[in-house]
Amino acid sequence: MTFDEIYNIALMQGFAGLSLFAVLLLMGLGLAIIFGQMGVINMAHGEFMTIGAYTIFLFSSLTESLAPGLIQVYFPIAIVCAFLIAFAFGWLAEWALIRHLYKRPLDTLLATWGLSLGMQQLFRSTFGPKEVSPTLPDWLMGSWAPTEGLDIPINGMFVLALTVVVTGGVLLALYKSRWGLRVRATVANRTMANAIGINTTRTDRLTFAIGCGVAGVAGAAFTTIGSTGPTSGSLYIVDAFLVVTFGGAASLWGTVVSAFGIAQTQSISEFFLSGSNAKVLTLLMIVTILMLRPQGLFAAKVRR
């Protein structure tokens, strides 16, 4: 191998780690909002991602049949709609199911698991049991090849950029907006927040819906790198929980750092070991660190 080749592979491998980081962060973000801020274990997180994926599929089919000329531009609009639709479903789920179970956190786990099975069957009945493939705009496909032998995946760059935007948006909202203030107050001390006039019920519903909306965006973005089918969401749910738990449930920064750590460990070990062994190594590292720090990497400074 020449020096150029090693240099190219190193660059591409570096980007592989970065793009896995983006994927993990994006899939964990919605869960971190819900789990971290509300303490609800949302087992249906993957299915809210699937809502996003099917939104892209719907938009691409509609665009193809009604306005084929717009196939290059529908994608960003569809992502916004994926957020809105998943948000609406999240709002509904919180109103119908979750709000009755806040005092019974383990029951939310069961209830949301049931919700996830129900949603999977709903997708199956609506869109059919087989996977579908949304038509993606050409500019999202293929690779950017600045020099011979160097290929940077365009979909990877897209997911990375989207992750930066969404994470930035969530952090900004959480630390600069009135909603963020209310959420943080509710997390810190629910009774006190209530006493000073914060409508914690509404805050909860909005938080849950926003978390679901972010999951929808993640699902929409992942149509560029993964499958769209009734059970696609279940491919991501384990990794999403891993990222959030490892990072420390109540901290968004923890989620960011944990996604980065897991992504780098996995992508580097995958390069030097076989795929299954790399997974074992990554999980071993997570388990060891969680044994030493059960609260995760970043614990929230909250007086309990």
């Binding site: 592979i9 591409m12 491998q13 980007f15 592989a16 793009s19 896995l20 994927v23 995946p153 990877g156 992942f222 790198i225 993964g226 499958s227 279940s234 491919l235 991501y236 996995q266 992508s267 580097i268 995958e270 390069f271 795929g275 299954s276 790399a278 997974k279």
Partner: peptide
């Protein structure tokens, strides 16, 4: 592993 969705390292 079954269900793995990230193949970039393998591709390299």
């Amino acid at each position: 592993p079954l269900g793995n969705t990230n193949f970039n390292s393998l591709i390299n």
